[in-house]
């Protein structure tokens, strides 16, 4: 009988694997400047825009861009802790404050898309007939139809909050009633909206690439108020000396160059352009 010493081999193998994994993990983390880390939003990630842009940039420069896709609020927090090299987010007011407070530098406009109001096909609140987005929001509040809010301090959430303020309705007071705060990303919010047959505000890119539309459709769009600009900025190397500013700047310059802007304009979902170049 061949006595296979299974257990010692297994134990040795696992120890080895663990050691290698940890050391390679640490090694990768220290591989200087071959990659940069960008905190961005779920809308850009989920729409597939980065899958379109990043390979071109990497092919040209050899710099890998790693994307952590979260809400704008969380992306700004990541930046404030120095855990990213640059940010690509969509909430101009928060972005200005971020730069003012010394966390970020060189904020630039990159592109915009727009928000759309999503609701059930039968549109019980009559949002389609409303003459502008403010009227549509008022109709929803009046009709008692449900509205699902991101509730996560994201760019989309902040845009929605500003509309409620504009129309003078304290929606949060009705939280738990017709106003539902899910505290989740755009996709999860759309899934909830679909199940509830409710209304919600989303960016067009996420909406177009969303796979579980069910009975939902766009019930209002096109207002100037629904303009959704994206900004890019570097994390301040003064505040966080470890950030890879040089490589991050290469990427920012590329994004805002003719080539980068052209690549953004080329991107299509179902034949539709959803992001529009916006450098000034």
């Amino acid at each position: 009988m061949v006595k296979l010493k299974v257990w010692p081999m297994l134990a040795a193998a696992t120890v080895l694997v663990a050691a290698i994994e940890l050391s390679t993990g640490i090694h990768i983390a220290h591989a200087e400047d071959r990659f940069i880390l960008m905190a961005s939003t779920t809308s850009t990630q989920n729409s597939g825009l980065f899958d379109h842009l990043l390979p071109r940039f990497t092919a040209k420069t050899g710099i890998q861009v790693r994307v952590v896709a979260v809400g704008t609020g969380q992306a700004l927090k990541i930046g404030q802790r120095g855990d990213a090299d640059l940010l690509l987010v969509h909430d101009p007011v928060s972005e200005m404050m971020f730069v003012r407070d010394g966390y970020g530098i060189d904020r630039r406009d990159v592109m915009y898309n727009d928000f759309v109001l999503i609701g059930p096909s039968n549109d019980p609140a009559g949002a389609t007939k409303a003459k502008n987005i403010n009227a549509a929001f008022r109709n929803i509040a009046k009709s008692g139809a449900s509205f699902v809010s991101r509730g996560d301090k994201s760019g989309t959430h902040n845009a929605e909050q500003r509309i409620w303020i504009d129309v003078g309705i304290n929606a949060v007071k009705h939280s738990g009633g017709w106003y539902r705060e899910v505290g989740a990303g755009m996709g999860a919010t759309l899934n909830t909206t679909s199940v509830m047959g409710a209304y919600t505000l989303t960016d067009r890119a996420t909406w177009l690439s969303f796979g579980n539309k069910g009975e939902l459709r766009i019930v209002h769009q096109g207002d100037e108020q629904l303009f959704n600009p994206y900004g890019v900025m570097l994390i301040s190397p003064k505040r966080f000396p470890h950030v890879k500013s040089a490589a991050a700047r290469v990427f920012m310059n590329w994004l805002t160059s003719d080539e980068g802007q052209g690549a953004i304009a080329e991107f299509r979902i179902d034949g539709q352009q959803v992001f529009f170049p916006n450098t000034k």
């Binding site: 940890l22 993990g25 640490i26 120095g82 470890h242």
Partner: peptide, 13 residues
């Protein structure tokens, strides 16, 4: 923080 391990497989491990 100085090890820069965040957002790496090592951090997940």
């Amino acid at each position: 923080g100085v090890f820069g391990l965040l957002y790496s497989p090592a951090a997940m491990i």
